[in-house]
Write a protein that binds this DNA or RNA. Structure first.
Lengths: 344, 344
DNA sequence: CTGAAAGCGCTTACAG
DNA sequence: CTGAAAGCGCTTACAG
């Protein structure tokens, strides 16, 4: 007995095909459900002929394993959650692609979720996802350490661009990129610069600032922090007033979005970039090479970061402890938004 | 009895807290599991005092409903799947945000998935997701009609920027934007233009081309199709040769990415935009206002599209048939990449 | 208002 | 190699 032949158009409700179950397969193959389960999950563990037959029937019936039902007894969903502080932030594209690549090759499923730049949303999303994934990746988390540790109590969790003591975290070393950037600025003749910081909740912004501070000190370059600011074009635009007030000749922005925003505001105010003001961003997003001038920036190998993070998480799931610890580095990319300061 | 006090660091495997179940709550609250289930799901249907007590215990135990277990008997997961032809395509940002907004307000959970611009990946992802979501949103699907109808047999499905007979689809009317664009080009004096088409599998590219063709004919403007092409910067760059060969004075690109790519290639070849060549894109992505010149484009109200699509899907889930059919329109945005053709 | 019981679709010791 | 049975965590008629 199937759907009545007069079923309405496919869009109409109420005529959905109930998916085939292992019981359906068992019945038409003349075996028990347990055997079906084995045939489908542990190839080789049962009679080759029966296995063949069962697989054929499954195929014929369009059988798909019900992931929820499968997860109940095993506690395994085959799914990995990736929570990004903002999915629409271009920064994370390469990371998402990197993650997708290894996820696919490992036969898991990726569930993407967006924290929408809000700790509350992030916390809630993480909690909701926690029950239906095998492990969680938190990218650029805005949560505090305590909350993250709490989440990690329930499922394996790997951090990206964030470090919490006791938890695995992938964060590319900011030092190489920052050193090159400051060398570059110094050689150009800049003596006084500013850092446009990101949100107060951004751990990464803190790391970048601390590193910058250290290295500026070491080179006898004056540096001030301007912020915290919102990590968007708008945030960058808003900072122009304070940048000018600070009388610096160059600024390093927390990210390219802010760098571009600052560039736009500068143009609008007839401040020439790079002649009057040099600007350096972070991340090398799509867009930072579209502006005029193009943005000099410090990039992370985010695709590698995504790959590495997923591999680390999968190792964690498999309780495989010898996950080789790769170290990743930032890299300086010189483009057009930096030049010698105008003599005054 | 809880974890031994000497549990290793949180990162260590094997010391995860087993989540509390309704049985745990039932035991400590001194009621039956059924009552706990009711207290938590049908507020008001049981004794107010017991309900209070149960909720308190649940809170105290840090209870979270197991979504897989809940979904088994009900067939409802509270989750909606959103498959995007490419999550990292800036076009979809506003759409994702719009979708997120109404999802949250309706108490559902959004699961984002990426088709990575591949019909195979899309098909597989859809199939995998199908079993664990209540409904599916396909954005810019690259699947053929038959396959989409097949998927729709199992779960409610809503299309975005795609139309398949019998299925609900949200696609903003391309006409208003295209009319304005052609009027604009005509008034500037262009008599011969080209359309840079997207992938052959892109339904939307076909619609844009057909509409353009109609309207160009109506205005006695010559128009040729160049393509199909890949809908990326690179695709746009590659098209310059054919654009020049076609001796047109203006081109409308399938999307802004291609428009920007074409602009870059033109710059590199010393073709002045807009003097030698006018360029119009589609979508108004982040980036199209970053270039020099900025890109004149035709935008869709993608945030409204996202909202509408989710609302439509939820109406479908609730078998609520009076989902008001909003119509959405494209809009022409004049920027700097269009000008009168140079006299020859 | 509340409980006992059956069932959702699967997996996996346990026997044979 | 294969089957019967119990169980994963929840929901929901069905009784009371």
């Amino acid at each position: 007995m199937t759907d009545p032949p007069d079923a309405r158009s496919p869009g109409a409700s109420g005529n959905r095909k109930p998916p085939a179950t292992i019981y359906d397969i068992a019945r038409t193959a003349g075996v028990s459900p347990s055997t079906v389960s084995r045939a489908l999950n542990k190839p080789g563990r049962i009679n080759a002929r029966t296995e063949r037959r069962i697989r054929d029937v499954a195929e014929e019936l369009g059988y798909r394993r019900n992931p929820m039902a499968g997860a109940l007894p095993t506690g395994r969903t085959g799914t990995i959650g990736l929570i990004v502080s903002d999915v629409t932030n271009p920064v994370y594209f390469d990371l998402i692609h990197g993650a997708e690549r290894v996820i696919a090759s490992e036969g898991h499923t990726l569930v993407l979720a967006d924290a929408q730049e809000s700790p509350d949303t992030e916390s809630e999303t993480a909690e909701r996802l926690l029950l239906s994934v095998d492990g969680l990746l938190l990218v650029g988390s805005r949560l505090d350490d305590a909350r993250i540790l709490e989440l990690a109590e329930h499922k394996p969790l790997v951090l990206v661009n964030r470090s919490v003591p006791g938890l695995p975290g992938i964060v590319p070393d900011p030092l190489p990129g920052i050193r090159k950037a400051l060398d570059h600025l110094a050689s150009l003749g800049h003596r006084s610069i500013a850092f446009l910081s990101g949100p107060a909740t951004s751990w990464m912004s803190g790391v970048r600032w601390e590193t910058l501070l250290d290295e500026a000190l070491r080179r006898d370059i004056g540096i001030v922090e301007i912020g915290p600011g919102i990590p968007t074009l708008e945030g960058g635009r808003q900072s122009l007033r304070r940048v000018r007030a600070a009388r610096v000749t160059a600024v390093v922005a927390y990210n390219d979005l802010m760098a571009i925003g600052l560039l736009q505001a500068a143009k609008a105010a007839d401040v020439d970039v790079p002649e009057d003001l040099s600007i350096i961003g972070f991340d090398d997003i799509f867009g930072s090479s579209l502006t005029t001038p193009t943005i000099t920036t410090i990039r992370s190998p985010l695709d590698r970061v995504g790959e590495t993070a997923i591999r680390r998480l999968i190792a964690e799931l498999d309780e495989d402890d010898h996950s080789a610890d790769v170290t990743l580095f930032t890299e300086f990319i010189e483009r057009e938004s930096t030049a010698p300061p105008r003599a005054r």
